[in-house]
Design a protein around this nucleic acid. Structure first.
Length: 545
RNA sequence: UGGGGUGUAGCCAAGCGGUAAGGCAGUGGGUUUUGAUCCCACCAUGCGCAGGUUCGAGUCCUGCCACCCCAGCCA
């Protein structure tokens, strides 16, 4: 029941329990609008809401805030549920929609009218804007502000009945056009939208606004702590006003925290959508995107995202988290559990000139520490491949390269000495001729040689060709989103390589694994039986600087 | 220039009047057949700035400065 995590929200809840300001269990909610896919910023909110409830023995609702039929769809409702579930959270039977409450919401609106706290306004959107005032000047009252209750009720019912055109009338709260808080200047509560709603169809042609809906839904569901992001701070007085002026005997406190910022990434649905539409990325699940579906396809485990969210913490401070923290979380959840294999992303052919006859079968553990992950066989023969970048004709002792006339250990195999470099017309190596040291076999090495580098490799007989996708930041500016995306995008955010992978990885359909020295990879859904495709989830951390 | 917020290390973040936790990053070292992992050590005389109160201030008071959010019939 007590938690190791501590932040101002959990402290507040702990106090509320102690001081008995809440009775019964803690109830939270995650309330997305189904107008896009979830991203890692939502994950922060999901981990907070579900996490808090879990820690205090409470419950969490998944509530879709579906009050704007123009932007919402079933596709998003489904993907959001999938993402929340994948992240490891369970709302059980507490799946709700703001649209479930449309009837109740409507009668609360009539209540407001009856109390003289709301009125039907015939001003156009432009006129409302013009009379709202500015940040420094007060607004002015609508000429329709003092209509009688009877007239307001009649008009509002006719709005609902579909007698009026979109934009011709709205229901407004009657608060204070001179309030320094612009949200309190007679905010719109209902607007006319003649559109099909993904759940309620054509039952309604008037739809409640967020400020009217959210607080009432919270109250009806008995949400004990309504957690939202900082930009809603100015909405809080309106949240409270609505609940104070409607007959509901429950009033959740709204508590705001700062949204997640991740450097070199954008969370804005608008920008994400435009990146997809402009073809800069391939869809909501592009592995370069910070969307949950993108991270999942990238290979990031849900556990790593949860760990990340907990390490980031919850405060009111604006933040821009470094990507290295996410990378760290990914590596540390993968380190102990991922089997190892070898893949050569950019192959350089190697001929073992003193090797004759049948291939030698070697054995390699699938994990250097965790023997439960088993072992596999490698075959060593005359034709091998190493990473092109692992060879240099000459290199300093610091650089762990195979050099001409130098030695290197082929991991779990033999020590080889490079005796000749075959080059193309441009002078770049196209083949290495090496001699292996027969008595240097891994595990029974009697050669006495101590080469300073160990290289990963594959043999022609036990590898198959594969595509590797290596990712970098999608953007090359820390805080993108302000300029033209084309100037901010990283042109090398996705690099594709044709290489080779140990065939056991494909044959046995390994899920995620570490290709030694290259990073953690996962098989992508673009794979075909002939050509597997691997996404690099994250490279290994590099000790060289 | 109105209102609402936020300022503690490169990035996060504890701290609740008693002498600056922790994580990531970084640096140095050890182990290592992955430049991985793991282990050890180092990393703020300093808490936006300036005053004040106090035996004692990141914590209280006053003034200033910087940054973020708000003028949708979006959420």
């Amino acid at each position: 029941m007590s938690s190791s995590v501590s932040d101002f929200i959990r402290n507040r809840i702990r106090d509320d329990i102690e001081n008995e300001v809440v009775d019964g269990t803690i109830i939270t909610r995650f309330p997305p609008e189904p107008n896009g896919y979830l991203h890692i910023g939502h994950a922060k909110s999901i981990c907070l809401n579900f996490g808090v409830a879990e820690e205090f023995g409470g419950k969490t609702y998944l509530r879709f805030d579906d009050t704007n039929p123009l932007k919402e769809s079933e596709e998003f409702v489904e993907s959001i549920q999938q993402d929340v579930r994948w992240l490891g959270f369970d709302w059980e039977d507490r799946l709700t929609f703001a649209s479930d409450y449309f009837d109740q919401l409507y009668s609360f609106a009539e209540q407001l009218i009856e109390k003289g706290r709301a009125f039907v306004c015939d001003l156009s959107a432009e006129e409302i804007r013009a009379t709202r005032g500015t940040l420094t000047e007060p607004g002015s009252n609508s000429p329709f502000r003092d209509r009688t209750v009877k007239e307001n009720l009649d008009l509002f019912r006719r709005m609902r009945a579909g007698e009026f055109d979109e934009g011709s009338r709205v229901l407004r709260a009657r608060i204070d056009m001179r309030s320094p808080n612009i949200h309190l200047r007679d905010p719109v509560l209902y607007r006319i939208v003649h559109a099909e709603h993904h759940r309620t169809g054509d039952k309604w042609c008037i739809y409640p606004m967020y400020d009217f809906t959210h607080c009432i839904c919270d109250a009806l569901e008995g949400i004990t702590h309504s957690l939202c992001t900082l930009e809603f701070e100015d909405n809080r007085p309106l949240y409270d006003w609505v609940l104070d002026n409607v007959s509901i005997n429950f009033h959740p406190p709204q508590i705001e925290f700062s949204r997640l910022g991740l450097e070199f990434n954008v969370m804005s649905k608008r920008i994400l959508t435009s990146l997809i539409n402009a073809g800069h990325v391939e869809g909501w699940d592009d592995p370069r995107l910070p969307t949950i579906s993108g991270l999942r396809r990238r290979g990031v485990p849900a556990e790593a995202i949860r760990d990340f969210c907990s390490r980031v913490g919850v405060t009111k401070q604006a933040n821009l988290i470094e990507t290295n923290l996410l990378d760290f979380c990914v590596r540390s959840t993968l380190e102990d559990t991922s089997p190892r294999a070898m893949a050569v992303v950019d192959p350089l052919p190697v001929t073992v000139i003193n090797f004759e006859g049948e291939d030698v079968t070697l054995e390699a553990p699938n994990h250097p520490k965790n023997s439960e992950l088993g072992k596999r066989e490698l075959t060593f023969g005359r034709n091998l491949f190493i990473e092109r970048s692992d060879f240099r004709e000459s290199a300093s002792k610091k650089q762990r390269k195979l050099t001409l006339n130098g030695l290197a250990r082929l991991r779990y195999g033999f020590i080889v000495e490079c005796v000749e470099v075959v080059k193309d017309g441009q002078g770049s190596p196209i083949e290495l001729k090496v001699r292996y040291v027969p008595e240097s076999r891994s595990g029974q090495d009697t050669s006495g040689l101590k080469p300073r580098s160990t290289l990963h490799w594959v043999s022609a007989t036990n590898s198959i060709s594969a595509k590797f996708r290596l990712f970098e930041n999608l953007f090359n500016v820390r805080e993108p989103g302000s300029g033209d995306p084309r100037d901010e995008l990283n042109p090398t955010s996705r690099i594709e390589k044709d290489g080779l992978v140990e065939r056991v990885v494909v044959d046995d359909d390994w899920e995620r694994c570490q290709f030694e020295r290259n990073g953690y990879f996962i098989k992508d859904l673009d794979s075909t039986p002939m050509k597997p495709v691997f996404n690099r989830i994250v490279p290994l951390s590099s000790g060289v600087h």
